Computed example of a mutant assay.
Amino acid sequence: MYWCRAHVLVCTANHCSQKGAQQVAARLRLELKRAGLDAEIMVNTCDSIDLCDIGPNIVVYPQGWIYRNVQVGDLPEVIESLRHGQHPVERLVLRPDSEDERRRRALYHAAVAQEPLAVTAFAALAERYGFDEAWVAEQARRGFIARKPGDDGDRITVTSKARHRYGLPDAT
């Protein structure tokens, strides 16, 4: 990283790109340049930050802010926040106690209590917590769940990555 005051990562993985992440990244760069902040604040795109269902996502370092569902219309507030670097745009910030994270944590706690789950049972559990099949597929692709063959069909288990992130017990 070049020496700068802040480094902004804009997720442009598949789900975020489908929701406009490329436009967010391009406009953010342009508006920072117009504001004379492009030498102080570096913007890069990145692959997934594992929050695919709530993107486009932005991570701001060194502050450690994670913004979710960022749209081009949010950028004036984001830029003002970056200009001063002291306070995030609260309505966009993802925190461990945010509703999005509470639902994920609850889903994974329920899954661990029942695992290994049949693929259809995991999909039904995910749906009860508001997550669709695309989310389930993305969780597998990102290594939060694993699909393993069983005697009576494939089973889903929660990986150590998800267990660590959501404070779940290790697999026995």
Rank of each mutant, 00 (worst) to 15 (best):
Y2W: 09
R5M: 11
A6H: 15
T12K: 13
S17R: 15
Q18N: 15
A21V: 10
A21C: 10
V24E: 02
A26M: 11
R29I: 14
L32D: 06
L32E: 07
K33T: 15
A35H: 09
A39F: 10
V43K: 04
T45K: 13
C46N: 03
D50R: 11
C52Q: 04
D53C: 03
N57F: 01
Q63S: 13
G64V: 01
Y67C: 11
N69Y: 10
V72R: 13
G73W: 07
G73F: 08
P76Y: 12
E77V: 05
V78R: 06
H84G: 08
H84S: 09
H84L: 12
E90F: 04
S98H: 07
D100K: 12
R102V: 13
R104K: 15
L107S: 04
Q114F: 11
A123D: 14
F131L: 09
A134C: 02
V136G: 07
E138P: 00
R141L: 14
G143F: 10
G143T: 04
K148R: 07
K148P: 00
D152M: 02
D154F: 08
V158F: 01
T159M: 00
S160N: 01
R163G: 00
H164K: 08
H164G: 01
R165M: 04
Y166F: 15
A171N: 02
